[in-house]
């Protein structure tokens, strides 16, 4: 920052310096140092700058706080959502499990009924099978018995033919 030497020059006293040189010197001096007005302006500017920065800092802090709050609330929301989702999922799973449980129970009931029916059927089939085996055995024996009947028929005709050959023809 520039300090003006003009006031100082008042007390230095008048020295015999040609006006032209003095003017030249002063103008050169002025060119190198700011004026008082400029300085005041600078101070104002600096103060404004300071205020602006201070304000900005305040704003930043506020923004940071807001951002933090947002982040925290996002976290909360996420947590809440997660909680809700888990809750939904869990409750859906529970419902599914309950449904499945129910259908399994129904299935068990149906299977028990089926087992009962199969047991009954097995009993019926076993009975039928026993009857079939007996029937088959009977058929075999009947067929074998029939074999003897058929064979005897051959023998009977053989005997009849033999007898009629021996007996003289009779007039009926």
């Amino acid at each position: 920052m520039g300090l003006s030497l003009r006031p100082m020059m008042r007390f230095v006293g008048r020295v015999l310096v040609p006006a032209r040189v003095r003017r030249a010197f002063l103008s050169r001096l002025d060119a190198r140092y700011v004026t008082q007005a400029d300085h005041r302006q600078d101070v104002r500017n600096i103060r404004d700058e300071f205020r602006r920065l201070h304000r900005e800092t305040k704003d930043d802090r506020r923004d940071d706080a807001a951002a933090y709050a947002t982040k925290e609330s996002a976290k909360d929301i996420a947590k809440a959502i997660a909680k809700d989702v888990v809750k939904d999922v869990v409750s859906a799973a529970v419902k599914d499990a309950q449904r499945e449980n129910q259908s399994l129970r129904e299935e068990i009931v149906a299977l028990r009924a089926e087992v009962r029916a199969l047991k009954q059927l097995t009993a019926t089939v076993n009975k039928a099978n026993d009857q079939a085996v007996k029937g088959h055995r009977l058929a075999e024996r009947t067929a074998e018995a029939l074999d003897h009947v058929l064979q005897n028929e051959v023998r009977v005709w053989q005997a009849i033919d033999g007898l009629s050959a021996q007996t003289p023809a009779t007039n009926l």
Binding site: Q151, V154, R155, W157, Q158, D161, G162, A165
Partner: peptide, 9 residues
């Protein structure tokens, strides 16, 4: 066929 007396099954 019919069996004669000497024939057999």
């Amino acid at each position: 066929f019919l069996l004669d007396p000497e024939d057999d099954v």
